[in-house]
Design a protein around this nucleic acid. Structure first.
Length: 269
DNA sequence: CCCTATCTTTAACAAGGCCT
DNA sequence: AGGCCTTGTTAAAGATAGGG
């Protein structure tokens, strides 16, 4: 769908893009073939042609960051269509909200399924798993997950990052992840009733009592957060492409894993 | 041409919100 | 209960399209 987008170009916003679509300029191809006079000013036509060449290179190089930094916030989910196979949905749990809080578990949902990482067991393998992706999707991760992970590992991750929180704000959806899930009718949460604070308590219980069942519940909670992120992202993708005059390709069918991969083996959800 | 309305970009600054 | 990126303002300037 990115090859049909124009609103990441300088001098074009959502309205300008609709203007192009209405006049039959439906994708980058049409710009390269030449925009008929009378649709845009000559200066803008030339500028568009230059920018198409640059943006083609970015897509060829599989650089999602090029698009994320240029698209208006609300339109950022468009990258999902072109990077679905290389996307990872990420969510971390910590031992609290205080300054200096530590990561306890991390869930990563990608084409490879749901992998979980546990402090003291396999957390050190998370950076390699992240670096293998070309797009990372979180909720509020710009302000929470990523800074904490970067402190934990003492490194910045080079993978472009789509934070759904400001995107949903731009579409008028305020509130926490769980409230928005409810409002949008996104199902699939297997650990209803638990929240972030329970995640803190479950970890404490696991560490202090050696309660393996508490850890398993924490991991299921962690995984259910990351699994609902995917349909949420695709909903935003649909909003972002709404108004495109041709039929949209359907999003890939949900992977819907029924188990998650832990350091010690498979765990049913 | 000229005037105007509209849109985009840029800047600086203020304020809010969501994670566990 | 903290952090801080985000969006929201405001303002100005530049580009554009349309009308006269």
């Amino acid at each position: 769908m990115l090859t049909r987008s124009f609103c990441h170009f300088r001098g074009v916003k959502r309205d300008g893009e609709r203007h192009l679509w209405r006049h039959g300029i439906l994708g980058w191809d049409d710009v390269e073939r030449g925009v008929p006079s009378g649709i845009l000013s000559p200066a803008k036509t030339a500028s568009l042609r230059e920018q198409v060449a640059v943006t083609r290179q970015a897509l060829l190089a599989r650089d999602a960051g090029h698009f994320l930094t240029r698209l208006p916030v609300a339109e950022r989910p468009r990258v999902l269509g072109d990077f679905a196979a290389e996307t990872g949905y990420l969510d971390i749990e910590t031992d609290g909200l205080y300054e200096g809080a530590r990561v306890t578990t991390v869930a990563l949902f990608s084409q490879d399924g749901v992998r979980v990482f546990v402090r003291g067991q396999n957390l050190d393998r998370l950076p390699a798993a992240i670096e293998g992706l070309r797009l990372l999707v979180t909720y509020n991760g710009k302000r929470f997950d990523m800074p904490i992970l970067q402190r934990e590992f003492g490194q910045e991750f080079g993978v472009p990052h789509l934070d759904l929180c400001p995107v949903l704000h731009a579409w008028g959806h305020y509130g926490g992840l769980k409230a928005i899930e409810r409002r949008l009718g996104i199902a699939g949460r297997t650990t209803g009733g638990l929240d972030g604070n329970d995640a803190v308590l479950l970890w404490q219980h696991y560490v202090e009592q050696g309660d393996a069942e508490a850890l398993r519940l924490l991991l299921r909670y962690n995984a259910s957060d990351v699994l609902t992120l995917e349909p949420l992202a695709w909903k935003a993708w649909r909003w972002a492409m709404d108004g495109y005059p041709l039929q949209l390709p359907v999003p890939p069918s949900r992977l819907c894993p029924n188990h998650l991969q832990t350091p010690w083996g498979s765990l049913a959800l």
